[in-house]
Computed example of a mutant assay.
Amino acid sequence: MLHRLLAILLAQADRPIAVSTIMEVLWGKRPPKTARKAVHVYVHQLRRLFGARVIQLTHGGYLLNTAESVIDSRQFMELTASAKDLQLQGEPAQAVHVWAQALALWRDSVAFSDVDCATGVIAAERTWLQEQRGTAWENRLAAAVSLGSGHDSIVGWQAMTEQHPYRERLHGLMMIAMYQSGRQEDALTTYENLRQRLAVELGIEPTPPLRKLHYQLLQHMPEGSLTLLSGVS
Rank of each mutant, 00 (worst) to 15 (best):
L170Q: 04
M174S: 05
R195Q: 08
E185I: 10
D152S: 13
A187S: 04
E168H: 10
G148K: 05
H164S: 13
E185W: 09
R183N: 09
P165K: 07
L170V: 10
A177M: 04
R197M: 04
L141Q: 04
Y191Q: 06
L198K: 00
E168N: 09
S153G: 11
V121A: 12
L141R: 05
L147R: 07
R126L: 03
R197F: 06
G150Q: 00
G134N: 02
R133F: 02
I154F: 06
G134A: 06
Q180P: 00
L141E: 00
S149L: 05
T189Q: 15
D152E: 15
G150W: 01
G148M: 01
R195E: 02
L170W: 09
V145Q: 05
D186M: 04
V121E: 03
N139V: 09
Q163R: 14
H151A: 11
A144S: 08
Q158L: 00
P165G: 07
T161Y: 08
N139F: 12
R195F: 04
M175D: 03
T135H: 08
A187I: 07
R169C: 03
G134S: 08
T189D: 15
V121P: 09
P165H: 07
R169K: 13
I176Y: 12
S153A: 15
W157M: 09
Q130N: 01
E162Y: 13
A136Y: 02
G148F: 01
Q132L: 10
D186A: 03
E138W: 10
H164D: 12
L198I: 03
A144Q: 00
T189L: 13
I122F: 13
G134F: 03
L170G: 06
N139S: 13
W128K: 15
H164R: 15
I154T: 00
R140M: 11
R195T: 05
Q132V: 08
I122A: 05
H164G: 12
E185C: 04
E168I: 02
R167A: 15
T135P: 01
A136G: 09
R133H: 03
M174K: 00
Q196W: 13
S149K: 05
A142T: 07
Q132I: 06
E192D: 07
E162D: 14
Q132C: 12
I176V: 15
L194K: 02
T190R: 10
N193E: 12
I122T: 09
Q184C: 10
V121I: 15
G182L: 14
L170Y: 09
Q180S: 03
A144P: 02
E131C: 10
R167P: 10
V121Y: 09
Q132N: 11
D186Y: 04
R140Y: 04
N139Q: 14
S181V: 05
R133K: 03
R167S: 14
M175L: 04
L198C: 05
Q196A: 14
R167M: 15
Q180H: 06
G182P: 12
T127F: 02
M160S: 14
E162I: 15
W137R: 13
M160Y: 11
L198M: 03
I122K: 07
A144Y: 06
N193G: 12
T190V: 11
A142S: 14
